[in-house]
Design a binder for these strands. Structure first.
Lengths: 151, 151
DNA sequence: CCTTGACCTTCCCATGATTGGAACCTTCAT
DNA sequence: ATGAAGGTTCCAATCATGGGAAGGTCAAGG
């Protein structure tokens, strides 16, 4: 199986397959005489594993840990669970941050007439001149870097 | 006010102030004879505006739009509201993606004994061998790039 | 046999927001 | 005058991903 076939079989782009190899997430694929990468069933399984883990938002580093545990037939499930729970906590924290931002903004937008007049509580809030009793945008919440979405 | 004072006054790092200038978000600051940047009240206000907008998760591009509207005393609040509502929709979409990931993973972790035994529904799911009736990790959801949190 | 098109290879570049550091200059207080 | 603190520019790295160039390989068909 060359890289294009492996890509189609796993839903991982050829670019990313090469990248995962370059960062050591998967071991270097075999090569044909003409220097084409040659993937076996085992590689395909690992790429599918990677894709599923990415779909759950795991970083490449975390996937490295998960792959190592997967390959280790004697791993304690405790370790896998720890990785998963830490990631869940990360996700929950980011969700909470973004929810707080969305709620604040929803409130401001709700208070904004949204017509031809220039008065705007959203801009007032951002400029610090708006109704100071409100929650305002002056929290130190910001979203956090994560990954990208499937095409 | 030099850049360090401006940074302390606004909570925007000196690095980011220079960056915002370089990308045209703020206009180039005045310079002293010794080539130090010199910020006035107006610059300070804009930097605070930017920080608040970042805290609400707006991208630099969106902040550019918001700043332009802010400077335009005759803008229709409709336009501001549109920018805000689009951003809320973006946030909500990302929240939904991440919530789906977290819920899936929470379920898997809940089903995982988390002890010394190697059997693990999390790895089973990732490897595609797990109880196929389940929601599984085979959705095409992934988080999306956003910004970072305040220091 | 040779061409064509589809595929592979490596290498470099760009993204977005942010931080870190090097090399060098300025200001201020001792 | 000397040193610390802080300014300046420029370059690099992060993370996961895609785009593209330049060149090698392969299979089908004329």
């Amino acid at each position: 199986m060359n890289i294009g076939q492996a890509s189609r079989a796993t839903g991982v782009s050829t670019k990313m397959i090469r990248y995962y190899e370059s960062v050591g997430l998967i071991r270097p694929a075999d090569r044909t005489d003409s220097n084409y990468r040659d993937f076996g069933d085992r590689d395909i399984n690992e790429l599918q594993f990677i894709r599923r883990a990415r779909n759950l938002g795991f970083s490449v580093g975390e996937i490295g840990q998960l792959l190592a545990l997967w390959r280790d037939r004697g791993r304690p499930s405790r370790e896998v669970k720890a990785v998963a729970e830490k990631h869940v906590a990360d996700l929950d924290a980011r969700i909470a941050e973004m929810k707080s931002m969305a709620d604040t903004l929803r409130h401001l937008a709700h208070c904004c007439a949204g017509d031809e007049r220039p008065d705007c509580p959203i801009l007032s809030d951002l400029s610090g001149t708006g109704t100071p009793g409100r929650q305002g945008a002056d929290t130190n919440l910001r979203p956090r870097t994560t990954a990208a979405i499937d095409r």
